[in-house]
Simulated scan of single mutants.
Amino acid sequence: MQIPDAEAMQAFNRTVVEEFRSNGGKVGGQFEGADLLLLTTTGAKSRQQRLTPLAYLRIDGRLIIIGSYAGADIHPAWVHNLRAYPRAKVELGTTSFDVIAFELPAAERDEIFSRIISVAPGFADYQARTKRVIPIFELQRIR
């Protein structure tokens, strides 16, 4: 699959972030009714703060994000950022908090992925589009 155009993605993400923050974490359009969060990571190379809107799932009370990048053959930048700097900030609705991200090991990832696709089958399509294994992260709140 072709890599998404970075400039177009940034513009799209800015619009989603503005709508999210203006409406208490709710957005319309293609994401209407979806569970979205805003993830602020530290750039793996730049060390600059990077803000990304992401879909998330709650599985067994765990906050889960999926590095699908719509099935592109590369990981989204936030995956590289979390691997380099696992501390991040999450905005969920009108609440924000710090987290530590843990990438799920292969066996756990596979078990969780099967549960993800049972409720969000589009992720199976994304995995089928790429040879890379789509990474899954758990975001654990820092108390």
Rank of each mutant, 00 (worst) to 15 (best):
E138W: 07
P121R: 03
T130E: 13
R129I: 11
L139Q: 09
P135G: 09
Y126H: 13
I100V: 15
D110E: 15
Y126M: 06
I100A: 14
K131G: 15
R132T: 11
T130Y: 07
I134F: 04
T130I: 06
F113P: 07
I136Y: 02
A128P: 07
E138M: 14
D125W: 01
Q140P: 06
T130K: 00
A101Q: 08
I100T: 15
D110L: 02
Y126R: 09
D110S: 12
S114W: 00
A106L: 15
I100W: 05
E103R: 06
A120L: 08
F113N: 09
I136Q: 11
L104E: 10
D125C: 00
K131P: 04
L139H: 08
A106H: 07
F113Y: 13
A101E: 07
E108I: 05
F102A: 08
K131S: 14
V133N: 08
Q140S: 14
L139P: 00
R109Y: 02
S114Y: 00
A128K: 12
I136D: 04
E138Y: 03
E108T: 10
Q127K: 12
Q127D: 13
G122D: 05
F137Q: 13
F102M: 07
I134M: 10
I100H: 14
F123W: 14
A128H: 13
S114D: 10
A120K: 04
E108L: 13
K131N: 15
R132V: 12
P121Y: 03
R132E: 09
R109V: 03
I136E: 06
A101F: 10
T130P: 11
L104G: 09
E138D: 11
I100L: 15
L104F: 11
Q127L: 11
A124M: 05
R115M: 00
L139W: 06
A120N: 02
E108G: 01
E111C: 00
S114E: 14
Q140C: 10
S114N: 09
F102W: 03
S114R: 14
I112A: 04
I116L: 03
E103K: 06
A101G: 10
A107Y: 07
Y126A: 08
G122R: 03
S118H: 04
A101N: 10
A107E: 15
E103I: 03
L139Y: 02
S118K: 08
F113L: 02
I116R: 02
P121D: 12
I136W: 07
P121L: 02
E111S: 01
D110V: 04
R129G: 12
E138F: 01
P105R: 09
P105H: 10
V133T: 15
V133G: 07
L104V: 09
K131A: 15
Q140E: 15
L139A: 07
F123M: 05
A106T: 15
R132F: 08
